[in-house]
């Protein structure tokens, strides 16, 4: 299940929805991303998240299919918020269920690493009177590239 929404999400509800959709699974791993209130020395008031409707869903669907091919998984649930999000707000939720924990941990990390480098979402940072678009980080590319090198 992939949800792109302006509304906040409740991790407990997302977890329960994932659990209900995952009969026979012995492991659920979840990740939540939060808006940091500082970027280096700069205070962050909010992020504005823009996306490419249609392509975001398609690219996340493709990542889910790749994860299902790589690991034996029960279900995947991804929620990504868009619009203006204040510091400390939740941005993203990724939950993965599987029979055993190792696969759920690996798939959750795979999904987040590749979401950050392939899903068409962009962050603009608002700090006081200034605003600027964030640039992609090479550390994110490195984190995603390890999944391309490494076989299952």
């Amino acid at each position: 299940m992939i949800l792109i929404q302006t509304e906040d999400f409740d991790v407990g509800e997302e977890y329960r929805a994932l659990q209900q959709a995952s009969p026979g699974c012995g492991a659920i791993v979840t990740f939540s991303g939060i808006v940091r209130d500082m970027a280096g020395q700069q205070r962050v008031d909010a992020l504005v998240i823009e996306h490419y409707p249609g392509m975001t869903e398609k690219s996340l669907q493709s990542l889910c299919e790749q994860a299902h091919q790589r690991w034996t998984l029960g279900n995947i649930r991804i929620v990504h918020r868009i619009g203006q999000l204040a510091a400390d707000a939740q941005i993203v939720f990724v939950g993965v269920s599987s029979q055993h924990r190792a696969e759920a941990f690996a798939a959750c990390e795979f999904l987040m690493d590749n979401l950050k480098t392939t899903a068409p979402l962009w962050k603009k940072q608002l700090s006081g009177d200034t605003q600027h678009w964030l640039e992609a980080k090479s550390s994110d590319d490195i984190a995603a590239s390890r999944w391309h090198k490494q076989a299952k």
């Binding site: 490419y52 990504h80 941005i91 979401l115 950050k116 068409p120 979402l121 962009w122 640039e135 992609a136």
Partner: peptide
């Protein structure tokens, strides 16, 4: 066709 900067979501 779409053109855009490197992505920064998540």
């Amino acid at each position: 066709v779409a053109f855009f900067p490197p992505v920064t979501g998540g």
